[in-house]
Design a protein around this nucleic acid. Sequence first.
DNA 1: GATGGTTGGTTGCAACATGCTACCAACGAT
DNA 2: ATCGTTGGTAGCATGTTGCAACCAACCATC
Lengths: 150, 150
Amino acid sequence: MVTRTRFDDSDCPVARSVDAIGDWWSLLIVRDAFDGSRRFGEFQRSLGVAKNILTARLRTLVAGGVLDSVPASDGSAYREYVLTEKGKALFPVIVALRQWGEQNFFAPGEPHSQLVDRRQGHRLRALEVLSEDGRRLNPDDTTVHKVSAQ
Amino acid sequence: MVTRTRFDDSDCPVARSVDAIGDWWSLLIVRDAFDGSRRFGEFQRSLGVAKNILTARLRTLVAGGVLDSVPASDGSAYREYVLTEKGKALFPVIVALRQWGEQNFFAPGEPHSQLVDRRQGHRLRALEVLSEDGRRLNPDDTTVHKVSAQ
DNA sequence: GATGGTTGGTTGCAACATGCTACCAACGAT
DNA sequence: ATCGTTGGTAGCATGTTGCAACCAACCATC
């Protein structure tokens, strides 16, 4: 578990997000959860992670409100791990990572798993950062206001 | 440094992305780079990270093509670290993390740093995941095609 | 051209996190 | 009752991180 005791970066939302899900396994667990994994064993087989590590990660994610631990849906006495609303709100993060990976780590034509629109089976539109009035923004078109009461 | 020698998850673009930038510091370094940091010392002061760790991370990011190490723009003999095109393409990832953090880790009215449209000073529009034909998609509206030649 | 502060690191070591393997308790089917 | 499956825990080896000390090159000043 990451415990941030360095100096204070804590007014930055990016830092708080990274604090919550910014390690190798947490993001992949969340990805698997979006893909339908729910059971301990599913995550474990899919990720190949050691079980003690998975235990710790799931606990952290539950404690952080990203996952919820609920009784298994098949009536057995086991538990399942499902995304909370907060966890589902990570969807754009996962999609952004996926699109960046697709564009930068695969040769043209190289096969890779693909996220598609369930209704039509088509690929998704690339994420766009937009201004309030709908202009498309590049990094240079933006700036950070240091601290402000919103 | 993370070396993935577990089993093969490598056809998933999310996994490759996480492999490249999926640790605590790398993402914050990239965030700082978007905010204008370029010099070793700037990153070090801004992040409070140990220098040996920063050295290692910068090297990894340069090796991964996210940052480029170029001669300093002020004419001194030192070097600067600037985002490559591939690095700039992480913009939606950072914005997604920022928006998730804003919505989930701050009380209403609690001050936090804010990313704004430089031209008008307004907040950005929330990222949306869209289908090819422009419908807004929730996680449940999508599914993963396991492997396919694109 | 010596000096002293700044920049950008490297090295060694202690502490902590991770991964592997073995073990184990509760469950569920027979 | 028993036997495989599920969901863990425990112990130990190894890898990664963080801290502090050191250091070499750069740069301004005298």
